[in-house]
Design a protein around this nucleic acid. Structure first.
Lengths: 242, 242
DNA sequence: GGTTAAAAGTCTAAAGTCAGGCCATTGACT
DNA sequence: AGTCAATGGCCTGACTTTAGACTTTTAACC
């Protein structure tokens, strides 16, 4: 007999605490940001003190994380004035933990469902929001970047940036956070399956439609197309991964 | 000159790490679960070893958290076989940190936006999902609880449980987690404003419509009504709080 | 060329957290 | 009544993280 009748709501409410893994969490966040192209190769990361404050982590811990990224070849560091940590042209693969494939299935299902809620909702919300000129510029710029991409890796990064941009213009940190998580995971999975040129044309059209629907305030359309867009990726992931 | 041009996407991507607060995080989660009525007064919490494992926290840390809750009068503990930590009939107020009111404004705006994405999306998704008999029962039961509530506090708890139930039947842990966060925050804010009897009739009808739309698979309707439902709360919060 | 400022690198003491084992208590079962 | 098992209570040693001061390096600036 368990001590409490295990209501499903208890399961829904209690979540693992990201305990003392400040270090790992930093590695994940910075690693994701680099892989998603939020930090571009050649650009400089914020300095250690600033970054540490942003991540709400002590400088010592942040330095550990940077050390790990340096060891993995993601960044390199120079000292002295004008120095800092710069992002390397990444060719290397993520020294990922190679999860056993059976909880992958569940993780994919989880993230795919979550995404189908977050991203269409964000697109809808973004379209309903009165956007400032900078936000509109951000969206069109991300869309343009997507056209300029000339490699699968570039394309996927630009894609992630656009999706994140859409969430970020809604003005909710929690929403941005959720979208970051989604994009990081989706990117990670997508990186393991072959890149299909055939999908691009369709994707491009959807991206174009979504951004313009948002800019014109057509929330229903933005949501609808984003939903289709996410479904396409979901089918890809569920079909090609096992 | 900052070291990196601070792209808005960097802001969207980097989030404070909940590093050094395993203890606080436990208190928050358990405290929220109790206040939302996920753990009912008089019922027993899972035993320490089990709870610690669920929260991914050492028993020592969990015990600290329980200690804090006991000190605040939320629970009481007895030892020996058949013992455990039971939830008290809570009359006391949360010894909340009384945030300075100016970032409250921002926090409310944030959570209200996030909610308007999460909950309508969850309702839509739930309606699209093939629900098992237990899940259907959970929803109707939560709806019935709402009718049985005979105090504002009861009502708000039943409301939170219903919303959480809707998210949980979608089968995504991340979605449940997001909804927990939303409900905890909304509950916290709602507890500070007067309870308006006039709103209940409208709310009740919306709840009824949403649940039945979900059970019948009418996703569009579930989403639409949930959206209205959230907007009503949002207006309440933004109007009555400052 | 010398000065300076901005950055990474280093050190330390204190606090938090963990893993796991052992003890103490007490109701449940025989 | 006696035994047992489940539960909270407690302890120790190792590791992580923190906060902040201090050092070193090096390019930018005059």
């Amino acid at each position: 007999m368990t001590s409490t009748m295990d209501s499903p709501l208890v399961d829904a409410m209690l979540h693992p605490v990201r305990g003392h893994m400040a270090f790992e969490s930093c590695v994940e966040q910075l690693g994701s940001a680099i892989q998603l192209g939020i930090f571009r190769p050649g650009s400089k990361l914020p300095n250690e003190r600033e970054l540490a404050e942003r991540l709400n982590v002590s400088r010592a811990t942040l330095r550990e994380a940077i050390s790990a990224l340096r060891a993995a070849g993601f960044v390199s560091t120079t000292r002295g004035r004008g120095g800092g940590t710069i992002v390397e042209q990444l060719a290397g693969e993520w020294p990922g933990e190679a999860h056993p494939s059976h909880d992958r299935q569940a993780e994919i299902e989880d993230i795919v469902v979550f995404r189908s809620v977050i991203e269409p909702g964000a697109a809808y919300r973004a379209a309903k929001t009165a956007l400032g000129p900078e936000q509109r510029a951000l969206l069109t710029e991300c869309l343009a970047d997507l056209g300029k991409a000339n490699s699968p890796a570039d394309y996927r990064q630009a894609d992630a940036r656009l999706h994140l941009a859409i969430a970020s213009v809604c003005g909710s940190d929690e929403l941005s956070k959720a979208c970051s998580l989604v994009q990081a995971k989706v990117h990670q999975f997508l990186a393991e399956i072959p890149f299909l040129q055939a999908n691009i044309a369709n994707s491009d059209e959807q991206h174009y439609t979504i951004v313009h629907a948002i800019l014109e305030g057509d929330a229903e359309r933005a949501r609808f197309v984003m939903h289709e867009h996410c479904d396409a990726t979901a089918a890809l992931l569920k079909g090609l991964l096992k």
